[in-house]
Design a protein around this nucleic acid. Sequence first.
DNA 1: GCTCGACCTG
DNA 2: CAGGTCGAGC
Length: 682
Amino acid sequence: MAYRPEEKCPALLIVTYCVEMGNRSFSWYGVFAILLGSGIFKEEKGMHRNNVSDPYDYSPISRHVDGQNGEPCIERGHFFPPPSYYASVISHLLSQPDANSELEPNFLLPSLQNTERLFQSSGNKTFSKEASTLSQLPLYGMSNSSQFHNEHLQAKRARVENIIRGMSILPNSIVPDTFGESDEHHTEKEKNYRESKRKQKPPHQQSPHETPLARPGKISIQSDECLQLKKQLHLLQHQLKQLGKKFLQPCELSDSSPCQGSMGKAMYLLKEKLGQSLDNSSQAIVSNQLQDLSWKNISKTEGSKLSEKEAAVTDSHILTSEDSTLSEILKHELIQVVTQAVDSVLKKVLPDSPDLPSQMCNAPPVTVSSTGREFSGAGEKISRKWLPKFSSHKASTSRITEKPPGFPTYPISSKMERRSQANCPLIMTSEVQGNGIISQMLLCSQNGPWGNTPRMASSPESLDVPWQPIKLKSSIMRHQRHPVSLKLSEMESFASLAASKAEFSEMHGAVNEIPFPSTHIQEALTPGHLRKAKLMFFFTRYPTSSLLKAYFLDVQFTRCVTSQLIKWFSNFREFYYIQMEKFARQAFLDGITDPNDLIVSRDSELFRTLNTHYNKGNDFEVPDGFLDVASLTLREFFGAIKGGKDLDPSWKKPIYKIISKLDGKIPDTFKSSSCLQEAIQG
DNA sequence: GCTCGACCTG
DNA sequence: CAGGTCGAGC
C-alpha cells in the first residue's frame, strides 16, 4: 500500500501539539481520539500544514530548533501512519466498552520494542545512529522504506510512536509531567528541571531520560494504564454526551432554529451513514459531536462559509453527492471547533510561549467571522449614504436621489461594529484548568456569566435599532438575551476569577469598560478611561492637561499618562476631522451649494459614524451641542472645499482654530470615578 | 530649546 | 491607538 501524505491524520497532529506544547492537556487525547475514531475527522486539504508552501509539511515539530546544534530537530516530512491505522486503534478502543478488558499495548504500539531500543541508545545527539535500526521495522504500510534511512526521519517516527505510547499509558488526563520517569527518579530536582525546560521552549522531543518507554518490563504497568485510558475514554464519552445535550437543547426548542439547516441535515446523513459502520457507543459520540457542531452553527451569524455548503446541501445533488457534502460540512465545522478550542486552551495553558498557538500551526485559516466593518450594500438609501440630513423643508428640493458616477460608498460602521461575542469564553483559572476542555465547556455553558451567549448569538438583537440614543442601555445588556444588570459585586466576582488585577482590568474593559468605582488612584489608564475620554470628546475637542487632570481624578497623572490622554484626544480629533472632510467633499460632489443645507442630525450618516466611534455602545446621549459643533465643522470644511481653499496645504488650520473655540463645559458627573454610569443614566 | 498639534505610519 | 516626525509658536 503506497503511502500518501494526504492520508496523514490531523487529529494526531493536534495531539502532537498538545504533547509538545506543554504536556499538560492530556485529556485532549481522548477527545481527538474519539473524533478520529468516529471517522468523521478528515483532513481538509492543506488546512493543517505547517508550511503553506509545502504540501508535505504537516509537522508542527519542524519549527522547533534543537537546543544543541541549532538545527531543526525534526525536519518536515511524512511520519504519520495512514489514518486508517489510528482509526483501527480507536475503533478497537471503542469496541471494548468493558472497562476491565485489557488493551494490548502492542496493538497501539506495533514497534514498541524498537522504540525502546531507540531511546535506550546513548550519545550526545538526541537520536543516535542506533536509531537507524528502526528502518528495518514495518513502516505502516509504506512501500518504499529506503527513504527512511535518513536519521531525521527515523527520529520523527520514533517520536510519534512515543507520543502514541504516551496516549496509551497515561492514566491521568491532567498530569502535566506526561512523560515523566518512574517514581524512583522523580526527584524534586528533576521535576524542577522539566518544569523549567518546559517554560524555556516547547518540548519538541523527549529525551531518553524522559521516556518511560525506554524501560523494559513495564508492560503490565502499561496495561493498567491502558485500562485507565479506556476509563478516561468512557468518561469523555459521557462528558461529550452531556455537552451535546446541553448545546442541542436550544436547537431543539425551536423548529425554525438554524439547526434545521445544513447541520441538521448533516446530522441526519451522518447518523444514517454511521449506523452502518459504527457501534452504538461510537454513534453516541458522533451524534453528540454533531450536536455540538449544531450549536456552533447556531452561533454563527453571518459570513460563514457554511452557507455555501448549505446551499450545496440543499441543492438537487444531495442524493448523489451527499457523502462529499457531508464530509465538507463536517470537516469545516470540526476544524473550526478544534482549532479554536486548541488555540484558546493553549493560549491559556502556555501564556509564556510566544509562538503559540495561533502562529504555531500557521493556523488553518479558520475564519472566525470578522467583526470588522462592512460596507453599505446597494440597498442603502442614497439620501443617507453620505449626508447629514438636510433640513426637512429643503430636503425635497435639494436631496440627491441618484448616485453620480464614481460615488464612493462609505462604511456604515454603526451597524457593523457591534461586537460579536458569540464565543463562549473558556475561563481557564487554576480551578478549572484541570478539568479538561469538555468540563470547561460544560462549566461555561452552565454556570458561566456568559452562559446565555450561544443563544444570544443565535438571535442577536436587531441591528436596526432606532438611532435615537437609548438611555440606560449598557452594552452588557446588549449582549444578554435577558438583560441583567451587572452589579458591582458580580464584577468583583469575575475579578476573583482573574489571576491578577491587571487581568481583571483587561477583562473588565472587555466586558463593558465601565470604570470600576474605586477610590484607588490608578497608575495607568484603562479601557474605561479611554471610553470616558471618548465621551468627553462630545464636549471638548481640545482639552488642556489641567482640564484632564480635573476630570480623571482616579488617575495618577504622570508625564506619560498626561501625554497619553493628550494623544487620545489628538487621535479623536484626527478621526473627527477626517470624517468631516470626507462628508464635506461628498456633499460638494453631490452638488450641494448652500452650506446651510448641511446639518448633522442624529439620524444622519455622519452622526452614526461619529457616534459609533466615540460612543460605541450607544449608551450615552450625545449632547445637542456636539451636533451643533459637528454641523459647523462640516460647513466650514464644505465652504473651504467649495472655495478651493483646500489647495492650500494648511487650509485646515483656520477650521481647527474655529473648532478649538467651541469647546463646551463638561458635566461634573465626568469628574467622579463612577461618572460613566451616572453619565449613562443621565 | 521646549511644547503642542497635525500628519503619517504600522 | 501609539510612535515618530515636522513645523509653528512661545
